[in-house]
């Protein structure tokens, strides 16, 4: 019985191999290059960072897994629907809000200067040793300096502001810190990445490390990178935040998800960002 079972297992392994080779066409696009407005070339393939320890042979932007039309949208700022959010973010940047009567620009001046590279290093440990996402830094300025209300996680205004800040890092390499004070957060995020949540018992790695390039129903699985966030999602017809994407992916395992803006998702954000070390910040991307 045991040998019989073994031979059947081998037969099914052979079928897996067939499925794998049959899916070759669904792998990341072999040679497409992401060049914005014919000028700015973004790095969409890279050697994995050392910490990845051989988990994948190469890292790829989610852009490479999308259809021709979707990829084209991101190459043209007039076609890219996320740019409308960037424009709104820019208007907010220059508008005074709150009891202190100040705008972001009153303290930070020209975002093209002061915000350059900020998104590339997010999420980042703050002066108090706490890991914060871009959203937290924005809300801290609002409540502490502008005396305005904090914006709701994944709300239009907050996503637009993150988008405006992200665009200032477009084309810069992802540069998150994972050692020193960041390390415990990074470790927590890594543990989450490999935890098989929910009644379907799937981890991030089940889909985005073990099965990227494969199709799960109509979806072509990417490596689940976040260098393109916030991202305009055609399916939702709006900009979405990293934490919104995480929430959806965990929900899809029939799990109790974590809230957007939770410490868990900040830690996961740091770890997932670090899997993209080597890619460029695309903020703001288009996906389906």
């Amino acid at each position: 019985m045991k040998t019989l079972t073994l031979s059947k297992l081998l037969a099914s392994a052979a079928m897996c191999a067939v499925a794998l080779s049959g899916a070759a066409t669904a792998q990341p696009h072999p040679d497409a290059e992401l060049i914005i407005e014919g000028e700015l070339q973004l790095k969409v393939r890279s050697e994995p960072a050392a910490h990845m320890d051989g988990a994948v042979p190469e890292i790829y932007s989610g852009w490479l897994f999308r259809a021709d039309e979707t990829r084209a949208l991101q190459m043209d700022d007039f076609e890219n629907p996320a740019m409308l959010g960037v424009e709104d973010g820019e208007a907010m940047w220059n508008t005074a809000e709150g009891a202190a009567g100040q705008s972001c620009a009153d303290c930070h001046g020209d975002a093209a200067e002061s915000m350059k590279g900020v998104r590339a290093a997010m999420p980042k440990v703050n002066a108090d040793g706490v890991l914060w996402s871009t959203e937290d830094y924005i809300n801290n300025c609002r409540t502490e300096r502008m005396e305005a209300d904090a914006l709701k996680w994944n709300s239009g205004p907050l996503n637009n502001m993150v988008a405006y800040i992200s665009v200032q890092s477009r084309g810069m390499p992802v540069a998150v810190q994972i050692d020193g004070e960041a390390e415990p957060y990074w470790e927590r995020g890594k543990e989450m990445y490999y935890t098989r949540y929910g009644q379907l018992e799937l981890s991030c790695a089940s889909c985005h490390e073990e099965n990227y390039g494969m199709n799960i129903r109509a979806d072509h699985l990417s490596q689940g990178q976040i260098n393109g966030f916030p991202t305009y999602r055609l399916k939702q017809a709006k900009l979405i935040s990293t934490h919104n994407r995480f929430r959806g992916c965990i929900r899809d395992t029939r799990a109790e998800s974590f809230p957007m803006g939770s410490d868990e998702f900040r830690a996961l954000e740091l770890y997932v960002a670090s899997r993209g070390l080597g890619l460029d910040v695309e903020g703001v991307a288009v996906r389906n």
Partner: peptide
């Protein structure tokens, strides 16, 4: 037997 089992696809607890 599950980690954070949910209530179907609602993202809420089971």
């Amino acid at each position: 037997d599950y980690i954070r089992p949910g209530n179907a696809y609602t993202a809420k607890a089971y």
